[in-house]
Design a protein around this nucleic acid. Structure first.
Lengths: 207, 207
DNA sequence: TTTTGGTTTTGATCTACGTCAAAGGTAAGC
DNA sequence: GCTTACCTTTGACGTAGATCAAAACCAAAA
C-alpha cells in the first residue's frame, strides 16, 4: 500500500461519491483536501489485517476488496466493496481497536484515504466540523440500512432464497466475484452454492 | 401508545443514557426538552407495524420490545431492545419509508420519543444542531458496531456456536426473553434451540 | 504447447436443523 | 381448584447443507 498525490480526476470521482451525502463548497474543498491521501493496493495485498488497528477509512476509486475472517485456518469472506463505496474495518476504525476482519484487494485498487487522526482533526476543524459530523452521521446511517437488510436476510431467508434475491438485485456483482466468496457471503459453502445454482437452473448470465 | 408529561426521574434516566454519547449543558437541556415526549406501550401493543412509516426514535426507560418479521403467516423475531437502549425501525425512520419489521412491547414499556420532524428541527436548531449531529453520528456508529458483530456471527458461526456465545455474553437476556424468540434471533427454530440446549447441557442458569 | 494454481462441479455420505405432531409444563384467568 | 393459553420438550422422519475426495475446468505462466 503506497501513497501518492491525488490526481484531478480522482478527486473529481471522490467529490461525486460524497455528493450522495454532503456537498462541500469550493472553499471547503480547499480546506479538506490536505487531509486526503491517494493510495493504491495491489491485488491480494491487504488494506487491514486481523489483529491490527484499522487506521483509515477509504473511498474506492477503482477496484474491489473483500472482507474475510479466518476460522480454523480457513478464510471466510463476509463482505465486499466496489467503486464509489467506503471501506474500513468499521468497528476497528471507530474504536481504534484490533480488527477481527482482514480486508484484501480482489483487484488492483485505488483509494482515497482519511487517517483516523486526521478525521478527528476534521471533526474539530473550525470551518469543517459541522459538515464532517453530518457527513459521518449520514454515512453511518447509510450502513445501518445496509446491515439491517443483511441481518434480516439471515433471519428470514434460506440460503437458497438469499442467493436468488442476490441474483435479482445484484446480478452484476455475481459476475465480478469468485463464486466461493459469494458462497461465504451467503453463509454457505462453495459446494452448496454450486448445487443451489444447479438445482435452481439460474446462473448469473442465463438468458 | 399514549403520550404524557415527562417525569423528573424519567428525564434523569434519559440524561444518563445519553451521556454515553454526548453531554448537554443545562442550558442545552432546556432547549432540548420541548422536543421530547414520554410515552407508554402496553405489553403486546406495537411501537410500529409492518407497512407503516416509523415516525419516532424511542429511548427505553423501562420494559422491553422485540422486532419481528412476518413470513408465511408466522412471526420471526430478529432483535430485542431493553432499558437504556434506543429503539426504532431504523431504515424506515431514517428514510421515512414503510417499515418491513414490526416492533412490539414484550412487557409494559415506558419510552421517551423524538418524532422525525422534531429531529429534523433539532438538526437545524441554531444552538443544538452541532451536538445533535454528533449525537446522531455516534448512535449510528454504535449500531454499526453491533450489527457488524451480528453479521459476523451468521457468517462464521454455527447456530450452536451462536447460542453458546450468547450464553457467555448475554446470559441475562436469555432469562428475560421467551426461548422461541431467542431461537429466531439465532436464526433457527424453537425446536432446534431446545435440542441444542439439551445436547450442550447448558441452560442459562445451570451452575 | 504444456504446466500450474486456483476454481467449480460432481459424487457419496453424514448430520444438523427443519417439519409435523403429540405430550408435558407453567402461569394467568376464571 | 380447574381451565385456558402458551411455551417447551420429545419423538419420528425428511431434507438442505456440510464434509471429504475426485474430477473437470479455466486461465495465466512457462
Amino acid at each position: 500500500m503506497k501513497n501518492q498525490m491525488i490526481s484531478k480526476t480522482t478527486l473529481q470521482i471522490f467529490k461525486e461519491g460524497l455528493a450522495k451525502f454532503v456537498t462541500f463548497s469550493d472553499a471547503e474543498w480547499i480546506e479538506l483536501t490536505p487531509y486526503l491521501m491517494a493510495s493504491s493496493i495491489k491485488k491480494k495485498d491487504h488494506f487491514v489485517v486481523h489483529g491490527k488497528v484499522c487506521k483509515h477509512v477509504g473511498f474506492v476509486i477503482k477496484g474491489s476488496l473483500r472482507f474475510y475472517h479466518v476460522k480454523d485456518g480457513a478464510e471466510i469472506t463476509g463482505y465486499f466493496c466496489f467503486e464509489n463505496e467506503f471501506v474500513s474495518s468499521y468497528k476497528s476504525y471507530l474504536k481504534q481497536e484490533p480488527s477481527l476482519t482482514c480486508i484484501q484487494a480482489m483487484e488492483d485498487t485505488e483509494l482515497i484515504l482519511i487517517a483516523y487522526e486526521d478525521m478527528q482533526q476534521l471533526l474539530a476543524h473550525p470551518k469543517l466540523a459541522f459538515k464532517m459530523e453530518q457527513f459521518g452521521r449520514l454515512i453511518a446511517e447509510y450502513y445501518i440500512c445496509c446491515y439491517e437488510d443483511r441481518i434480516t436476510a439471515f433471519i428470514v431467508q434460506s440460503p437458497e432464497e438469499r442467493y436468488l434475491t442476490m441474483l435479482e438485485n445484484q446480478a452484476g456483482l455475481l459476475l465480478r466475484i469468485p463464486q466461493h466468496y459469494v458462497a461465504n457471503f451467503l453463509g454457505i459453502t462453495p459446494v452448496s452454492l454450486s448445487r443451489i445454482r444447479k438445482r435452481t437452473l439460474r446462473g448469473p448470465v442465463t438468458s
